[in-house]
Amino acid sequence: MVQVLVARVARVCRNDRGGSPRVLERRWTSFLKVRLQCALPGDTVFYFDVLEAVTPPCALHGRPAVLALFGTQPNSIPGSAVCAFYLADVERAFEGPFAEPRGGTGTWIPVPEDRVPHPRPGCCAGMGTATGVVTSGDFPDETLAFAKEHPLLHGAVAPAGGRPLFTRTGTRLTQLAVDAGAGPCW
């Protein structure tokens, strides 16, 4: 079986102090991750999955964004791409459906919303649907158990514009820089 690398971004609440003594004690309760997808669209989509570098947030078309440098899999044709991701799109992805493996097939499927407990796993104590929860240790055991078993969200964050800003084949680039003094990212 070939190991495939996939770029993901994670989120943890600043006020997360871990779960209850029964579930996720001294472990993050709000940890969630979602895939960043940088690919060339077409009849056969060509993915750049290996995350090499990310810029600090900057303005892209007047919206907060990050630029990320991706490479191809180590056993693939060498190549690199730069994709931009709007921070609002990343944040929205964390509100999407959770993922779970489909019975030993290696594929992941979305968890039906009616199986997701309330307050929503991964949310921050004292905020949003968890305004009545004082600390991360006060979440119901059902929410904490679900969070422990479902840290991955289904789907992926698409790049701004739906495609890479830059691609290069035949080489793997490893560093990315943005001259913020010259103006917006792009």
Rank of each mutant, 00 (worst) to 15 (best):
T169A: 09
C124H: 01
D179V: 06
T167G: 06
Y86W: 10
A93Q: 04
T29Y: 03
T167L: 06
F46Y: 15
P101N: 12
S76A: 13
F31R: 11
F48D: 04
D141H: 14
R27I: 04
R17H: 15
P121Y: 03
I77N: 04
T55M: 05
D179R: 08
S30F: 03
G155I: 07
R102F: 12
F85G: 01
G62Q: 09
L67T: 01
L5D: 11
I109E: 15
A99T: 05
N15S: 15
D43S: 13
E95Y: 08
C38N: 03
G42I: 13
F166A: 13
D141G: 05
G183L: 12
W186D: 13
C185D: 03
P74D: 05
S80V: 01
W28S: 11
E52W: 08
C123Q: 04
V2E: 13
S20Q: 10
S80Y: 01
P56A: 14
L165Q: 12
R115E: 07
P151M: 05
R115L: 10
H118Q: 14
P184E: 14
D49S: 15
A156H: 13
A81Y: 02
E52C: 10
L165K: 09
T169M: 10
A125P: 06
H150F: 03
P117S: 09
D179P: 00
C13D: 01
L153N: 00
A7L: 07
V111Q: 05
A145I: 02
R11P: 00
T107P: 00
A65G: 07
C83W: 03
R27V: 02
P41N: 08
P121L: 07
V82P: 00
P101Y: 08
L60Q: 05
R115C: 01
A53I: 02
H154S: 11
D141C: 09
A160G: 03
V54T: 15
T167P: 03
W186Q: 12
E100V: 08
F70D: 00
V82Y: 01
T167K: 04
G161Y: 06
E52P: 01
G132W: 12
V34E: 02
R168G: 01
A39K: 14
D114Q: 08
E52M: 14
